[in-house]
């Protein structure tokens, strides 16, 4: 039965999504995005098992690579902001509005 894995994947995706919306620290927000990507991976692997083809497993590898590249770029941006503002809170970045 693969249903449990899909439910888990949906739960992880939802937890990640809520985390992005409610957390204040940019690093934690970013970790929540990564959680969402991992939820996608779980769904891909589960569906690959269900359909009996390997596409989903291959996609999971691609997603991991993309997530790694995203970490590099994201952390670079967050660290630069932290160096100028001494804060990684997304609430403090409020110069651009309306």
């Amino acid at each position: 039965m693969t249903t449990h894995y899909l439910v888990l994947s949906a739960l992880l995706f939802a937890i990640g999504g809520v985390g992005v919306l409610v957390r204040r620290n940019a690093i934690v927000v970013f970790m929540c995005v990564e959680l969402m990507l991992n939820a996608c991976n779980l769904a891909f692997v589960t569906f690959a098992r269900q359909h009996g083809n390997l596409d989903g497993q291959v996609i999971a590898f691609f997603v991991m690579i993309v997530a790694a590249a995203e970490v590099v770029v994201g952390l670079a941006i967050i660290v630069t902001i932290f160096r100028t503002r001494r804060s990684a809170s997304v609430d403090d970045a409020n110069l651009l509005k309306y």
């Binding site: 994947s9 995706f13 990640g16 999504g17 992005v20 940019a26 927000v29 970013f30 995005v33 969402m36 990507l37 939820a39 996608c40 769904a43 891909f44 569906f47 989903g56 996609i59 997603v63 995203e70 770029v73 994201g74 941006i77 967050i78 630069t80 902001i81 997304v90 970045a93 409020n94 110069l95 651009l96």
Partner: peptide
């Protein structure tokens, strides 16, 4: 600030794109 907003929201939206793909 623009880079951070674009990055966090962009990554958020591409996670949605990926879940839709899944």
């Amino acid at each position: 600030e623009a880079a951070m907003k674009y990055f966090l929201l962009g990554a958020f939206s591409s996670a949605f794109f990926l879940y839709g793909t899944a």
